[in-house]
Structure formats: structure tokens, C-alpha cells
Nucleic acid binder design. Structure first.
Lengths: 242, 242
DNA sequence: CATGTATAATGGTCTAGACCGGGTAGAGGA
DNA sequence: TCCTCTACCCGGTCTAGACCATTATACATG
């Protein structure tokens, strides 16, 4: 089992979070199963209890674990049943579907905002924007073509990160962005010729076109994403309430 | 200003949470305003920093506050009121979009459940089902082709109703069905030849395929609907939260 | 005037303990 | 056999510090 690197710039609690997440994904820990207690994690990884606690509490907040006083901490069931559509990144979405994520960065540029992007992000035309176009693969096969437009000030930290390996949202969170909510739209469309080749489907194949504007805790729109999902591989499910 | 009661069984961090919440509600602290720093709260209320931190972090998780390293902690803006996707009928959906609804009943039959319908409705194959196929128009033009499969016992009252004029959900509610929630999936597809003619589009046009299983308050699945929406006319928007 | 630079403040992470109340399983007694 | 009590483990709360990175500001230097 991987340990915790004290000299790493990555916080210990974060390392522990990833370790626990890994154990759940590898099914070393299964749904409903008791995970090691806080005190046992402290001892095993040589960290203090408050640090172990922070890792666990964040996973509880994310719905990955749940706790019962006096009993212990358990792996939560898949929460597909529970909630209506949640705001997730592609990485998180695929992880919940149990698929392996990989990405290819096709374009990453700093450029002035055009009229469409400026309107969605509520900034002036010409404002500096990072445009990140990625091919997103699930289980090794193309799933979506995603073009994000990000406020330069918010996302400039990601320019030095290899976005083919990182989750944009995780990077942004690490960079101090507090992601709050998004307005998203879904539309059926056909795959165009250029996109078809990249996605590995025939032109005119069905596609789900998803547009999203994401807001931070201050209510500022910091991201406009336009994604083309392969209709033959992607389907959205959600629970609706009256 | 109220203080913190050390002898109270209510945890200190929780008392502080309520104090801060109160200051926001009384507008002593306003949107976007800096709140006292962790260290200042410690001193003012005679608690340790980790305790003050817990109060603040929970309010951050709840979206009441947001933090910026090196700057401070601020009061977040009021949350967007708009809701995530609600469970609505076609009639309600179009009414909210400000479009006029009309329908044509194409088929309405009582028939035994086939394997697919039986699985979705969690009944045995051969169980009596009402199948209702309608063309749904918005502002006089075809919008969707909708095929509902309903448990006979639940929906037999609708057999005597002119479903080209009535809302299915309103009729069911009138018949005593308490609609609770639904599991819905969205998928991109192409319009087939038969459907194309009815929908008034070319075969191979983009379509949004929506499947829904609707449950009543007892948790019984009573409806399975499969709808084909015209991709050129229909788009779904919703607000997602973290 | 522009440009660094020291300083102080903030939140972020972390430690090594402490006591509390809830839950459970085993020991001992009826 | 069955019940009760107790010891132990669990998470929940809390302390009093520590060092770090980020940020703003005031000041000194070119």
C-alpha cells in the first residue's frame, strides 16, 4: 500500500484522501464496509488525528463515506439513486460511472474573448481567456470533445499543468477557486465532419451537445464549456422530484 | 453581541456558526463583506483557532461564506433560487416555456407488458398495461413523439378521457395517484424514418431520446415513457450544484 | 517615478495531546 | 440461559501552539 510522502508539497490530508479513494476504486474497500478508524489511520500513516480527520471529513462531504458515532466510518453506496444532477467535472462523472479517464489536449491558448464567450462569461470582448480544447476518453475510447473557456485570472495556474492528466476542477480548487454552481443545457445535434474524425465516429452520427457556464462562490462566471458527447456512448440519468 | 457559553451542551463551533449566521441575517455583515479573521474570532470568543475554523469551514461548505487565501473570509452572495430539473409533464414543461400545447393521440391500447416494459415497471411479463402514444405539439408544430406505458390498475381511469386535450399527470392525480419522483435518462439519437414523417423532419435528423420511469409515493413504478424530441426545437436547461 | 522589498495579516496545513458520549462485546452474576 | 455492567473502541469536540504560502501595504532604493 502506498504511503504518505512527508516531503511532498501535496498536503498529507489530500494524499490520504486519494489513498482512501483508491482503495474504494480498487474494491479493496467495498460499499457499506467499515474503513480503518481515525486512530488506526494516524498510526499506519504516521500523521496526527486531526489530519486524518480532515481527509475523512472531506470524503464524507463528498458523499463517498458516511460516519456513525460509536460505530465507525463506512463506504457509501453509489449515490446515483440519491440526487438530481450534480455539478461534476468530466473526470468525476466518468469516475462515478466506473470508467477510466484519459485526455488529449488538442489546443490550449490564451486569447481575447470573442462575442459569444464574452456574453456567457459576462466580461468585455477582448478580455484575456484561456481556451482549452481536449479530447476526453473513457476506457480508452473517445467520449467527448470539450472546449473550455476560462477567465485568465482564475485559471492561469492551469497553464503550467499537464491538463491531459489533471482534472480541471481539481486544479482550480487547488488554485483556490470555490466552485459553486452551473447553468447547463443539453441539446441533440449531429457530429460535424471535423469533430467526427477526432471522435472516431461517422459524420452525421448523433451527439449530445452540452453547454455549461460555471460560477464560483462569489457568483462570478468563470468558465464556459461547450462539449460534444458521442450519442452512442453517453447518456445522462438523473432523478427528478415533484 | 452574544457570546459563547462554555458550559452549554451545544458545541462551541456550532454556537459560533449561529452567531455568524445571525450577523449575516441581521445584515450586520453584508454580501461580499470581509468577516473577522480566524484569529480575531478566537480572541473575541475565547476559543481556539481550530474551533473557529470548524465553524467557518462548515459555513463555507454550505455556501454561506467563501475564503481567499491571504485575503480573508467573505459573505457569499445569495444563492440562485432557480431549481434543478423538476419532475414535470410535457404540458407543464411547455407551459413554463410559454408555448401552447396540443396533442394528437396516435394509439391507445390495453395490452400485455413486453419484456422491456415489464422490467422498467417491475412487474411480470404479460401484466396488463395501457400504452398511449401521442404526438405532442408546441405552438402548433410537432415537438415530440411520446409513448407512455402505464400500469392498468393505476391509469384505467384515463381510458375514458380524451387524452388529446388532457394532461396525463393531472388526470392521474385526479384519480388519486400521488406522483413522487422519476428516474430519467437523456440520450442523443437520430430520428427514424417512421417517426420522421410524424415529427415533420427529415430522417436522420438529431433527436433527444428521453426515457422516464415514474414512481408514486409508495415507491411503485407506475409509468414508463419513451419520448423522441426534435433536436432542432428542444433543449433542456438546468442548474447544477456541487 | 517605478520597482523592489520587508512586514504583517490572512487562510492552509499540521501536531500531540485531551475529554466526551454513543455503541458493542464480553465478563460476571442472577 | 439470560441479563446487566463494564471496558474498550468509535467518532465528536477542543486546545494551544507551530510553520507555510499568499496577499496587501508601506517603505526604501534605483
Amino acid at each position: 500500500m502506498a504511503g504518505i510522502d512527508t516531503n511532498s508539497p501535496i498536503p498529507k490530508y489530500y494524499q490520504l484522501k486519494e489513498i482512501i479513494r483508491g482503495m474504494i476504486e480498487s474494491e479493496e474497500l467495498q460499499e457499506g464496509q467499515l474503513i480503518p478508524s481515525e486512530r488506526e489511520l494516524c498510526e499506519r500513516y504516521g500523521i496526527s488525528r486531526m489530519t486524518a480527520r480532515q481527509a475523512i471529513m472531506e470524503l464524507v462531504n463528498e458523499g463517498v463515506l458516511y460516519r456513525e458515532q460509536g460505530k465507525g466510518t463506512f463506504v457509501a453506496g453509489k449515490k446515483v439513486q440519491q440526487e438530481a444532477a450534480r455539478l461534476t467535472s468530466f473526470t468525476e462523472d466518468m469516475r462515478e460511472r466506473g470508467m477510466a479517464v484519459s485526455s488529449t489536449v488538442l489546443e490550449m491558448e490564451v486569447e481575447p474573448a470573442g462575442p459569444v464567450v464574452a456574453r456567457f462569461l459576462r466580461v468585455d470582448e477582448g478580455e484575456r481567456i484561456i481556451r482549452l480544447k481536449r479530447l476526453r476518453n473513457a476506457d480508452g475510447e473517445p467520449m467527448a470533445l470539450e472546449t473550455s473557456h476560462l477567465l485568465y485570472d482564475v485559471a492561469r495556474g492551469t497553464l503550467e499543468v499537464d491538463m491531459s492528466k489533471s482534472s480541471l476542477y481539481e486544479e482550480l480548487r487547488r488554485g483556490g477557486v470555490s466552485i459553486s454552481h452551473a447553468e447547463q443545457s443539453y441539446e441533440a445535434a449531429l457530429v460535424g465532419e471535423a469533430d467526427a474524425e477526432v471522435l472516431g465516429v461517422a459524420p452525421g452520427s448523433p451527439a449530445l451537445l452540452i453547454e455549461r457556464v460555471t460560477f464560483d462562490a462569489k457568483g462570478r462566471a468563470f468558465e464556459y464549456v461547450r462539449s460534444v458527447y458521442r450519442g452512442d456512448r453517453y447518456r445522462i440519468t438523473s432523478v427528478l422530484r415533484v
